[in-house]
Design a protein around this nucleic acid. Structure first.
Lengths: 205, 205
DNA sequence: TGTACATCAGTGAACGCGCGTTCACTGATGTAC
DNA sequence: TGTACATCAGTGAACGCGCGTTCACTGATGTAC
């Protein structure tokens, strides 16, 4: 239970939460440190007790995002085991679900311009998420004859790009850009066709 | 030939060009009207002779982008005729080529937060580009048996999303995110697999 | 061709604003005895 | 349990800055006669 009064109790996390909300609403660069402080009920100067500055606050928000993201992907992967196909499909669904449920995190991670190599922590968290997807793709590609099997990293890059594109163009309400189909349906069907192209699902499915 | 001296001659376009350069370098929100004016060799106040303000300048840059984009897509589509497959593949390649050659335009169009419905001109230009891709997808899908044929708009949304994802994640040097493969190779192979999944190209290709 | 004048694209100074960051400070908390 | 004191998370005032926008103006351009 957070303490009250002069000392905030958990200002650090409150600032991150405020930042996430503002990033979601105002966009990655519309976000201001001062406003985040205000929203947390605190003077802008107080932020400097917990972060080195504006960039550091955003980076921390992104880091928490990557951790949640990697955990989600990992859980999804495991939930589909031992079927390589089910595991793979679950991770794809987890990608979209994460972007939906955590738009602030998603923006901080992918649109804020924060380098993933800013800190070792951040790079590690980002890598962990990437590795889950690559693992899922690798498992699945074992079912393709070795001589016509694309590298797992290419496979996973395709899926990542398709997922990211669906999120950016059709899942967030891009100003003025109407989605022709629900994002999850679009992603699911796209991946289905792609997997058929790899010979991994029934052509008459 | 532009005039010289007190009167600039073609300040309007010079401002748009400066904006495009700055948007490319500084990002969609890092761009400032004052800096664009400075780069065009003019006082910030002069901008208001040609645009209503900052937003209007960005919107104009986006509009020019959509026009170029639609023209490119259209030319690519025609270049592949009468083969539906060639026309389709050419439009996909044109997408990536445009993003590569016109990063400022691309950002103004897709990442600046400018609504595509801001003006009728803008909406029309955006629609024209979209229609080319949808047309190409529609032509191609005629080769799929009608009962297992996805709607052309879904088909084109898949390709658009994949292209956009490749551009965002792997074509621009996303800070700290190394591309596992060249972007064009990634897009080409991804689309190849997708088309195979639709039964539109030789499974042993 | 030369002059008078209207047009209008630019200037430059000023504005109010919110930003990120710094600093000396203060007052609440927690610990030692 | 009570008191003295160290710690440290917050305050609030101040800073310099660049922003977008406005305004009255000026001087170059182009046209009418």
């Amino acid at each position: 239970m957070p303490k009250q009064g002069y000392h905030h109790g958990n200002l650090r996390q409150a600032l991150i939460d405020a930042a996430l909300e503002l990033i979601e609403v105002r966009g990655p660069t519309g976000f201001t440190l001062s406003e985040a402080a205000k929203q947390a009920g605190v003077t802008p100067a107080a932020v400097y007790r917990h972060f080195e500055g504006r960039e550091d606050l955003i980076a921390e928000a992104a880091l928490q995002g990557y951790v949640i993201f990697a955990d989600l992907m990992d859980a999804a992967y495991n939930s589909g085991q031992p079927s390589a196909l089910k595991a793979f499909e679950a991770t794809s669904r987890a990608y979209l679900a994460f972007a939906r449920a955590n738009p602030g995190h998603y923006i901080a991670m992918f649109e804020s311009g924060i380098s993933v190599n800013r800190t070792p922590d951040l790079a590690a968290a980002a890598n962990r998420a990437n590795n889950v997807l690559e693992q899922a793709a690798g498992d699945l590609s074992q079912h393709i004859p070795a001589e016509k099997r694309p590298p797992a990293s290419m496979f996973s890059a395709h899926i990542w790009a398709l997922s990211h594109g669906v999120v950016e163009l059709f899942a967030r309400n891009s100003p003025g850009r109407a989605s022709p189909f629900p994002a999850d349906e679009l992603l699911e069907s796209g991946i289905g066709i792609y997997l058929r192209g790899l010979g991994l699902v029934d052509p008459d499915g």
